[in-house]
Design a binder for these strands. Structure first.
Lengths: 230, 230
DNA sequence: GCTTGATGTCATCATAAGAAGACATCGAAC
DNA sequence: GTTCGATGTCTTCTTATGATGACATCAAGC
């Protein structure tokens, strides 16, 4: 089990997976050639057929390996007690739903999170999304939310990944249709992230995620029907 | 100028343009073959080279011809006086910014719209976006907001189209960075539209635009910093 | 009716890409 | 040290695709 073996199937597989994740996110599925993946991975592209069955199988593997947002690990900047600024839309006089101590639990790390407050859930979701964007970038799976051309298998794989994000949002949503509210929030959250990553909206792509936190959180809160002013 | 001439360059050009708009929106740029465009248009694909210079030129023409949202024409359903339901987030007691009669002017039809109220601008924008989605569908240009793989020329063409949408939003935005707020609103608006069109979020794709109006408008209002409760 | 440019049709080329298989080489087990 | 499966490298095949040019056909102007 030498770590620098000249031949190591797992190592090659991982290299291909990482290179494919980059390239699929950068150039899209149709625009990515498996030869390019092999080049970037420093691995012969023929191994893609061996380990993943082909280009489509590689894509599936990339989607299955992507968590969409950062796992429950706390944000890298500062103590996790106050990783986010107050939301303008809810910092006012009434402050409908109380935030506070529920933030830590809202990151949904343990499998049995104790029903965090809706606002804390939103804050945790934004934090985890920002962590993901700034560390490994916006993934191909996130882009799939906005692509018509993905085939059924890839769409299904994307849906399964999205469930992780949709589930807490459903719980946080207020209104007669929590599923719709949660999906709307996903469209807003990933829409901003993917658009920022794409670069067509220049100002959006230029600002730091910190400058995005307040307005994006406000939009999510509104999309979920959590606005306290109604 | 017979309308059914067997040979008509303008007619062929238009057929190619329409077919290309459909296919680029459906399959993406890389996934669209010019032969498919020719087939759908009922025109020989070699004419693409003649009229547009090639696939890239055809794509540019499609982007340039797309308005992203419906032109200022009033909505088809009912009188334009009340095309939209009240927004939950702002239907409350205080109602920060007054709506009312400014709605008609907010659709920004005449070149010198009389500085409509921010809320009316948002309402008009949502109406026009919905009209576009339900009539001709979500365009390839709108999708480009969320695609990294588009080349510089296409990105620039998309930006020029976006300016039409960004300009009134900048005027409606409240806060220190109107450009960022406007781009954020664009990401939210088109993010929801493109995601709904893509079909990965099943509930979002299933509901009618009318069911989307209230929460989407609320999210846009929040993204623009127009929430009255702060 | 003829001419001529515009328009349309067809064949072909060069390239890129995914897939598949033949062959080479490594290394663990014995 | 030998064997043999695992791993890696290389070549080749087939297909799809964008581009190009030759040729055919139409229609307007004289």
């Amino acid at each position: 089990m030498n770590t620098t073996r000249r031949r190591d199937a797992a190592r090659s597989r991982q290299a291909l997976l990482a290179a494919a994740a980059d390239l699929f996110a950068e150039r899209g599925y149709a625009g990515t050639a498996i030869r390019s993946v092999g080049d970037r991975a420093g691995v012969d592209p023929a191994l893609i057929a061996r380990y993943f069955g082909g280009k489509e199988g590689l894509y599936q593997a990339v989607l299955a390996a992507d968590p969409l947002i950062e796992q429950s690990a706390p944000s890298a900047d500062g103590p996790p007690a106050a990783p986010h600024a107050p939301v303008p839309a809810t910092s006012g006089d009434d402050g409908a739903v109380d935030d506070g101590a529920a933030v830590a639990g809202a990151v949904a790390g343990p499998p049995d999170e104790p029903a965090a407050s809706p606002l804390a859930t939103v804050h945790g979701m934004v934090d985890r999304a920002f962590d993901k964007w700034t560390s490994t970038g916006v993934s191909a799976a996130a882009q799939n939310v906005f692509r018509r051309e993905v085939d059924d298998a890839a769409r299904q794989a994307t849906r399964e990944r999205l469930d992780t994000v949709l589930e807490p949002l459903r719980g946080a949503a207020d209104g007669p249709d929590p599923q719709l509210a949660a999906e709307l929030a996903v469209a807003v959250l990933f829409g901003v992230g993917v658009a920022r990553d794409a670069g067509t909206l220049t100002r959006l792509s230029a600002v730091s995620v910190d400058e995005l936190r307040a307005p994006l959180t406000a939009a999510l809160v509104a999309a979920l029907g959590l606005t306290d002013c109604q």
